[in-house]
Simulated scan of single mutants.
Amino acid sequence: MKLKYGAYLSMLVLLFSNCSKDDNEESDGDGLENSTWVATKTDDNPNTNPPGAFDMNGNNVYYPWKDCHMDDSFIFLKDRLTINDNATACEDGIDLIFNTKNQAYSYNPATKKLTIGSGDDVAVIDVFELNKDRLKLGIAIPTGNGLGYLVFLFKRK
């Protein structure tokens, strides 16, 4: 399955755009509040993947993090998300997506939905895994074979 670079870019813009504040119901130790995450290319728990294959004929694809993103920090405070590129900028300018600071977010553990955005720029992201070590997020994407997921993998910093 081929996804155009522009499709990745537009999904990331939605993922990391400005957001509105909702009540944060997360309070357990495995929640997002007061946690810091970094990107990873390794799926340590494929059992939590969305339905469908991740092979050449599958509808799902892992987000192909660039090396310049591997030191970025995704910091979830009580009601704010800060993305810090840690001074490692990507040459092609894609860091503009990851430079957004102090975004509001909300997470609903009952529905396993992470909401980022406000007004017309809201993105609702599926949370496939959230524990003390791993965070796996997915955005539904149309494919030639129906719907699939673009999956973002993170590990706790």
Rank of each mutant, 00 (worst) to 15 (best):
G6L: 13
G6C: 10
G6V: 10
G6E: 13
A7G: 06
Y8D: 01
L9N: 13
S10K: 13
L12V: 02
V13F: 03
L14S: 04
L14D: 00
L15P: 05
S17F: 00
N18Q: 07
N18I: 09
S20M: 04
K21P: 04
K21V: 08
D22K: 10
N24I: 14
E25Y: 11
E25W: 12
E26L: 05
E26D: 15
E26Y: 09
S27V: 14
S27W: 03
D28Q: 02
D28W: 08
D28A: 07
D30V: 11
D30E: 12
L32T: 06
L32P: 04
N34P: 04
N34R: 02
S35E: 04
S35N: 05
T36P: 01
V38N: 13
A39Q: 08
A39M: 11
T42H: 05
D43L: 05
D43E: 00
D44H: 10
N45T: 13
P46N: 07
N49L: 05
P50H: 11
P51C: 01
G52T: 12
A53P: 05
D55T: 07
N59I: 08
N59P: 05
V61G: 01
Y63N: 01
P64D: 03
W65V: 08
W65R: 07
K66P: 01
K66D: 09
K66S: 05
D67H: 00
D67S: 15
M70T: 06
M70V: 04
D72Y: 15
D72F: 12
S73H: 15
I75D: 15
I75L: 14
I75N: 15
F76A: 11
